[in-house]
């Protein structure tokens, strides 16, 4: 990227709208490459800034998210360099490889959040309560397991299965209307 190619006219409303619509997908992309949510918000902010400064580079005929993922990938790599003394989940080679694979999934990724909401509604009440405890109330899996008198490993496996169910549901229904 050419650092000097800053846009001087600023982002258009259309650009802003696309950027807004892509936030959750970009966040998920960054979390995947970082191997967790720590620092993901900082990387997203840096990515947003770079995207806005270079909005003139964006070809509106091209998918926005795929273009944005490229910036996010660079920001993840830059962040890794600044954190080299910290423990990193993935190594550089894996990040590059996985970013390339994730970019293939960019199509319609910005509508996943909406589909996910519907998929959560399809869970049974107990499953929804678990999702709510972990993600809405922010309880750790260990605490939920303790509260329900279940082994942590069993609860972790349950959450793995729940995320798998939701991922499969999102995958099968993305792009479809009227998911009941």
């Amino acid at each position: 990227m050419d650092e000097n190619m800053l846009d001087t006219s600023g982002p258009t409303p259309e650009f802003v709208q696309r950027l807004m619509a892509s936030q959750s997908a970009m966040y998920a992309f960054i979390v995947s490459l970082l191997g967790g949510v720590n620092d993901a918000d900082d990387v997203l902010q840096e990515t947003n800034m770079k995207l806005c400064r270079r909005c003139a580079l964006y070809d509106r005929e091209q998918p926005f998210l795929r273009w944005a993922y490229t910036f996010a990938r660079f920001e993840v790599m830059a962040h890794r360099k600044s954190k080299q003394r910290s423990r990193l989940v993935l190594d550089d080679e894996l990040v590059v490889r996985m970013a390339g694979e994730l970019e293939e999934y960019a199509e319609k990724a910005d509508s996943r959040l909406k589909v996910l909401e519907r998929c959560i509604e399809r869970l049974n009440p107990r499953q929804r309560e678990l999702i709510s405890a972990r993600y809405s109330r922010g309880e750790a899996v260990r605490d939920i397991a303790e509260r329900l008198s279940r082994p942590e490993n069993a609860m972790a496996a349950l959450f793995y299965r729940l995320r798998k169910i939701l991922a499969d549901c999102v995958h099968s229904n993305i792009g479809k209307e009227g998911l009941a």
Binding site: Q23, A28, I30, D41, L116, Y135, R163, A167, V170
Partner: peptide
């Protein structure tokens, strides 16, 4: 890798959906 993507992406989207991601103040 496919399973990892699924887990990470759904985990991130659930966190985002529930407002637990610290969205940049400028947005």
């Amino acid at each position: 890798r496919e399973a990892y993507y699924q887990q990470m992406q759904i985990h991130a989207l659930l966190i985002w959906q529930n407002g637990r991601a610290a969205v940049p103040e400028s947005l």
